[in-house]
Write a protein that binds this DNA or RNA. Structure first.
Lengths: 334, 334
DNA sequence: CCTCCAGCGCGAAACGTTTAGCTCTATAAT
DNA sequence: ATTATAGAGCTAAACGTTTCGCGCTGGAGG
């Protein structure tokens, strides 16, 4: 492997000039050409480790997500990775298996690896620690969930209006008793989605029956339980919104097991995974989050911060979702 | 951030001795203690970049998979990552979006990042290039697919016996005309799965009707087309094996669209994703690959190679699969 | 008592960059 | 003609490690 020294020797120029060239400094046109050829000829490749030693930059970005088995996150990661790679950054991806203790540990791992920036989805690990990072001038971007009281850039879906619009579709179709299977209390996304549900009821002057609001844990099992509970109640809902992918799966499993006919016995709108929506019968209506946009926005924002551009910090990007209505939703006649 | 120098100054020992301690060399017990305390006190952290500059090790492993949106691969990656992290390695994960050109590019990216080792799933990129890596004494482990004529460690599922056993289940249930939706010709996994199909037919003295063997492209769409084609033929199969996750999805979509009743009109066994198997109606029989085992085996093997232990190189690990029969398969009466 | 040797520690060079500060030259401004 | 200025290149130090080769010490073997 040839080094900057070899290029210097080959061209007759000094090491400093080569370095200047590499980093885009001012070099005479004729020397530019000379260096360019030499680099090609000698197959010179910059040594990121030597460079990192001087600059304290590793050219790697840490990405931390709750689970690598959750396609919502991995899709976003895939997009982020591509964009960062075009700027020469490698990405170290960690998941914490939905475990808050592990979240902390993995975050520390990333920091110990000297990443230049972090994009993360937090389930509420050590907020103090996360805050302390923002002091270390290593840019951190929060994905999917905001954290109260932490001044960091954030990219989220418009969760409130997502559930607002989904429920609105059901209301327009004359449903009066609409159930919702939500995430845990005090979880950002869940709280927002709950707010949307409540607000649309208010806007349409519909009463809210607290019993129709089931709080799950964003797991398959809790989705299953939620559907069971709602179906067993005295005056069960005629329509239902399930607010994440895993719980949607659980709910559908319960629907199958209980032999509930969709949509005549229950209209249902799920969340997130378009592909699955096509596999189940009848085709499932879903709320689609703008994964591509989320990934792009986060990656570009991070790149901007890495360049030292802290304009409008902390920025909050709230991206629009889309509701796809399919045969799993029925219009009630009254 | 304190350096090895600070520790030396603090303890009154030389830099060399501290380095020795850090790397597990011989140091007097009393000095060990001294150094240990100093490190703690000064919060000394080894600088991997400086170290890397000397040793040419980055303590990062490259992982290359076809798609981050394929849960089969991401599950394996998640396991690998955990194990490597326990040994201090970070992992740079790249996907190539099922695109062979991109495979090559991403692989080069990983190499340019000076990873210490690579675990990859190849769709058949530049074999010469991959071979050249094995010359560079950077260990490479092939996952999921073997490549002919390349001497590298390999961890794969026992694809041949996977389809053998799945089809055997159908044969035992008296099916005589069994269809298979397979991957592309000249693809390792697909060829193996085809072989299993053929061998079990031979072992049970059943004729093979070439028309029952559909070659898809491991995509949702080709699974859909495959089912359509098989169903439209003159003497359609009574049972079907679909040999990857995406094509299984496609096949189920087609079954829904064509209103085919499972299992009375068609028995079906799918591949890979247990969760999905529970969501569709009736519950889907599937072939499960040992993802956990695959990940563990690959990670541990790589760790071994990184230590310079090249015992039994190149090693081939062929791991057993498991067939889960559910209501989607029916026993024929004759 | 001398010689060897192992164990432990040390000094210093090296890894491949970046960058501050300098010199030199050519041109513009006076 | 003189001076100021900007552009281009150079020298050398520094980043934080690892490691080679050496020296010292003390105990074992003769």
């Amino acid at each position: 492997m040839s080094t900057i020294k070899d290029v210097a020797k080959y061209t007759g120029l000094s090491i400093a000039t080569i370095s200047k060239y590499i980093n885009g400094g001012n070099v005479l046109e004729q020397n530019r050409e000379l260096i360019k050829n030499a680099i090609e000829k000698l197959e010179y490749k910059r040594n990121d480790m030597a460079r990192g030693l001087k600059t304290n930059k590793t050219m790697t970005i840490g990405i931390l997500i709750p689970s690598l088995e959750n396609i919502f996150f991995t899709t976003i990661v895939s997009i982020i990775e591509d964009i960062l790679q075009d700027s020469g950054y490698g990405t170290i991806i960690c998941d914490f298996k939905e475990n808050v203790d592990l979240e902390q540990k993995k975050l520390e791992f990333l920091v110990s690896k000297n990443v230049d920036g972090i994009i993360m989805v937090s389930y509420g690990g050590d907020l103090e620690y996360i805050k302390s990072l923002s002091g270390k001038e290593i840019p951190v971007i929060l994905l999917d969930r905001m954290i109260k009281g932490v001044d960091l850039d954030v990219v989220v879906a418009d969760n409130l209006n997502a559930s607002y619009q989904a429920v609105e579709e059901l209301i327009i179709k004359k449903h009066k008793r609409i159930g919702i299977i939500c995430g845990p209390k005090n979880t950002y996304t869940a709280d927002e989605r709950r707010k949307g549900y409540i607000r649309v009821h208010q806007d349409y002057n519909l009463d809210i029956d607290e019993k129709l609001m089931f709080n799950g844990r964003y797991t398959v099992e809790s989705g299953y339980n939620g559907l069971e509970a709602l179906k067993k109640m005295e005056n069960p809902p005629t329509a239902l919104l399930v607010t994440n992918y895993e719980m949607t799966i659980g709910a559908i499993m319960a629907i199958n097991d209980l032999n509930i006919v969709v949509p005549s016995e229950l209209s249902i709108i799920g969340f997130d995974n378009i592909q699955m929506a096509k596999v189940v019968r009848p085709p499932l209506s879903i709320v689609e989050q703008p994964m591509k946009e989320i990934g792009e926005t986060a990656a570009k924002l991070l790149l901007k911060r890495l360049k030292g551009d802290y304009a409008s910090f902390p920025a909050v990007h709230r991206l629009k979702t889309k509701v796809h209505i399919k045969e799993s939703v029925q219009k009630l006649v009254n």
